[in-house]
Every structure is written in C-alpha cells, then in structure tokens.
Amino acid sequence: MILEIKDIVKYFNGFCALMNVELDVEENRLHAIIGPNGAGKTTLFNLISGIYDVSEGQIAFREKSINALKPHQRAELGISRTFQIVRLFGHMSVLENVMLGSHCKTRTGLLKTLFRVSLRELEEEKTTRENAMRWLEFVGIAHKASQIAANLPHAEQRLVEIARALSQDPNLLLFDEPAAGMNPKETLDLESLIVKINQMGKTVLLIEHNMDLVMEISHVISVLNFGAKIAEGKPSEIQENPVVIEAYLGRKR
C-alpha cells in the first residue's frame, strides 16, 4: 500500500467537504477518483499534497503518517501533483519550470552557488538540466524548452506541468483533471502518456471527468459524492453500480 487514507474528515468553517473517507492506493496502480462537481475530489488531493491539513483522520504514505508534514516535505518523500487549473511559473522558461521540479532532490545552497566552492555545484546544475530535458522529451515538448511558459498553448502548459511533476522523481503522482480543456486528439495522447508513466512503475492517482479515458485506463476507480466515498471497484463494476448511476444521473422513476 503506497497511500493509506483512514477516516479523514475535512471541515471548511463548519461545512463538511469530506466525511470519513477511506482510500487505499496500491503500489503501481492507476487509481482514478471520479464524482460529480463538488464531491470533494480536489479537496482530497489538497489534503494528500499538504495544501490543507486534515480536520480528523490519518494519511499514511508507505506506512508512515504524513499528517504533520509540510507540502515541500511530502514532495521530498515522493508525492507530486498537477493542478486542475495549470499552475506554472508563467514568466520563467519551460525548461526552468521543469528544472524547479528537481529542487527537492538537489542540495546546492546559496553560498555554494555564489562562491563556487567545488565543481559539484556545476555538475548538479548540469544533471538537473539534463534530467529536465529528458522529461520534456518524454512528454514531447522538448522543442519548446527555451520558451516562456505562459506563451504556450493550454495543452502544452499541462504537459510542462506533468514534466515538472515527473522531474521530482515521485513514487506517487496526483493528476487533477489533466484532460480538462483538451481536444480529443490531445486527450488521446495524454491517455497514452499517463499509461506510460504508470508502466514506468509510478503509482498514479487520477481525477478525471472524461469517462472514456477513466474507464479505458484505470485499474481501480473510487467514486466520491457529497464528500463521501460511495463506491469502489474495477471500471466494469463501477459502470454497473446502481449507486454510482444514481449519483450521476438521478433516480429512476
């Protein structure tokens, strides 16, 4: 089990966004989370990546509780994510954005940068750059490396974000609606990219509204509705689950 979520509750000023949600994510799985708008999916991601603290409950990453860890410490442990609305450092170049992903795995501090105490710093910079270029090639936009991130079209910005998440060398990747705003062709490319990432041995937790994509590639699907988990299972099971159908389409008369 790479991620174990036990009985988490999240309140926002008395509003209960998540209640007693349990979620176990197994190593190397492609685990999707679906649910109608406002079901608490992104809140769940924010709790896992540490943007919010849980009100109650436990989140464990590889058998260790991460409740008390700050976001950057969780990133260091190997949890990385993308955002529902792309969050790149707009005025920096694509390459610099991806190089930032290596920040938590590298060590060169301010004084060592400024006074070049040893060659190690230059080497680390070189490795960081090569690593970033490799991931940009992997997602297929290496040719845009020197452009300013904000100038890229939406779908490519998303790929930069994915490359940045990958350059953190994570074990667990959280993708928050990666296909949002993409055209069918881009969505298909993204689909095979996510599968490829998963096959590299990385556990993927995926929030997505595109059901074709979700049903096609996920191993396990968990369904959230009004802050509670209402179903979990293989894609085929979820498609036939009456509770899920009701949550999405309403009750049959």
């Binding site: 976001p71 950057h72 190089m99 992903g101 290596s102 060169t108």
Partner: peptide, 20 residues
C-alpha cells in the same frame, strides 16, 4: 537552483511549496 527557487516563490509561493 536557488535563483530559480527565489523566482518561483516570488511568482507563486503555494505552488512552489507543493513542488518541493
């Protein structure tokens, strides 16, 4: 490395923290 981190924090500190 530090220079990029400085810029990242200046431009969006929440995102900077999440990416490590």
């Amino acid at each position: 490395r530090m220079g990029r981190a400085l810029q990242a924090v200046g431009s969006d500190e929440d995102t900077a923290e999440v990416i490590g």
